[in-house]
Nucleic acid binder design. Structure first.
Ligand SMILES: NC(=O)c1ccc[n+]([C@@H]2O[C@H](COP(=O)([O-])OP(=O)(O)OC[C@H]3O[C@@H](n4cnc5c(N)ncnc54)[C@H](O)[C@@H]3O)[C@@H](O)[C@H]2O)c1
Ligand SMILES: NC(=O)c1ccc[n+]([C@@H]2O[C@H](COP(=O)([O-])OP(=O)(O)OC[C@H]3O[C@@H](n4cnc5c(N)ncnc54)[C@H](O)[C@@H]3O)[C@@H](O)[C@H]2O)c1
Lengths: 220, 220
DNA sequence: AATTACATGTGAATTGCTTCACAAGAAATA
DNA sequence: TATTTCTTGTGAAGCAATTCACATGTAATT
């Protein structure tokens, strides 16, 4: 393990999230026909400081040209590399209900390299049905099918009551990253990454903000 | 404006998010039959330090009993008050597509006081149709209907291409909080709160984590 | 009533993140 | 080629968030 790799362990979550933002904005700038962009312009579009943009990038190398700025296409490529999105990720969705099937229909994921290739449910009425060309598999076959299909990430959209059981199954199948939508604290082994998408939390934040005239520094 | 109000302006976004987490865990503890809970136990369930829990709460008052801990029901009530969720929020969903209709079906929101009472779309095939007992209104009537229904929050689930126009309309209608699902940087006046729900960003974070063996301090 | 055990609430210390400020380098201009 | 203009990359400074550590207080026990 090199020093560089150790370095990356210190990158903050905020920095990663901002890299995602830069990536999206760079795609937009590319479409708008810009060849280069300064940290100042990038910062303006994200409501950040130019120093923040430069510092974030500096953790990974130096990608700009002094006096000129960054080459839009090049920087976009570098960030894709950093984020690991210059490749295809094979994903399974577990729980094909309201939210699960909405996610399956979302073409933008595919365009970004997040390929949903397997769907699982335990409801006999859903098993065998077709969503955007993918047949819903029986949850009973989860482990084998996940392994056979080389799935590395799972989007979990089952009821909170069964979410932990499904996580355990998914982990057993060798999946290393889970995006969970159930409002519950899940346990995963240390080598499995778990992110929670919690919409109620965001509504609660808005509620607090209105009630208290909240004005924090950085709002996502 | 009192000193207390000014105080609240300094509360960090992380603290608010943790209050949401505490609230959910307290609800669970209540169901599990616990009368009291210590900062230690609460912290354990959230993977935080006890000091963090106590510090978060200390910004708003002192709710515990030394030697004993916090009364579960009481603390839950206090946090509900702080977050402003001890009341009903009237919400409209704009854009009744894949994700919009999934959200409308989500009963948990209602249980938490987030009442979705109006739906809007611009598609003639959707206008007039019924979702969970609510008729989809024509987006043309947005301003009047939002005002008449006393809507204070909007969930925005329209394509990114039209999201800014819809925000402008919604702001004009007097809405003070927006939860946006379109992957785009929206502009709102300073007195309107905007939160973005960005699922791609979470997948990108997972991608980065796998590729770099990322081990940050606090993971959501 | 005294003692023990336990857990809060909070200044102080520490850690982490953001912003500052400027030397250094590249491009454009004269 | 020299000069001006512009913008990066980065240590240092400043600020914000987290954790420490303990005085204080309550309840349970003897
Ligand atoms: N719908 C929303 O807008 C929304 C919003 C926020 C959070 N969530 C959360 O997302 C999750 C899914 O919500 P939903 O509204 O789509 O619910 P849903 O009931 O529509 O979908 C859940 C799906 O999971 C399947 N399922 C149940 N047990 C299973 C198992 N053991 N194995 C495999 N599949 C199983 C069900 O058959 C169903 O198809 C829930 O945890 C919910 O709390 C939903
Ligand atoms: N589906 C997902 O899983 C998902 C995931 C992440 C983000 N998003 C984002 O959420 C948004 C909605 O996605 P979706 O998949 O539900 O799309 P969708 O096309 O299914 O739904 C969009 C809805 O908005 C309506 N609409 C379009 N223009 C409108 C206007 N001017 N006024 C009112 N309504 C209008 C359409 O008629 C449609 O019903 C998009 O911005 C998308 O990028 C979706």
């Amino acid at each position: 393990m090199t020093t560089d790799t150790n370095l990356k362990k210190r990158i903050s979550e905020s920095t990663i999230h901002r890299l995602s933002m830069y990536f999206r904005t760079l795609s937009l700038l590319e479409k708008e026909g810009f060849d280069t962009v300064s940290s100042k312009e990038l910062a303006k579009r994200e409501k950040l400081t130019p120093a923040q943009v430069r510092k974030d990038l500096s953790f990974f190398g130096s990608f700009g040209t002094r006096g000129l700025g960054y080459d839009v296409g090049e920087l976009k490529g570098k960030i894709a590399e950093i984020l690991g999105i210059n490749r295809v990720w094979r994903i399974a969705v577990v729980g094909i209900g309201n939210i699960g099937s909405a996610l399956v229909s979302y073409k933008e994921f595919t365009r970004q390299g997040f390929h949903i290739v397997k769907l699982f449910d335990n409801d006999q009425r859903k098993i065998g049905s077709n969503h955007k060309g993918i047949t819903v598999s029986d949850i009973q076959n989860l482990e084998k099918e996940i392994r056979d299909a080389n799935i590395e990430m799972v989007i979990l959209t089952v009821p909170a009551t069964v979410a932990q059981y499904m996580v355990d199954d998914v982990v057993r199948a060798g999946v290393k990253a889970i995006l969970n939508f159930a409002p519950i604290n899940l346990k995963v082994p240390p080598d499995v990454y778990l992110r929670n998408e919690n919409m109620s939390m965001e509504l609660e934040y808005l509620s607090f903000a209105i009630m208290n005239n909240h004005t924090p520094k950085n709002v996502r």
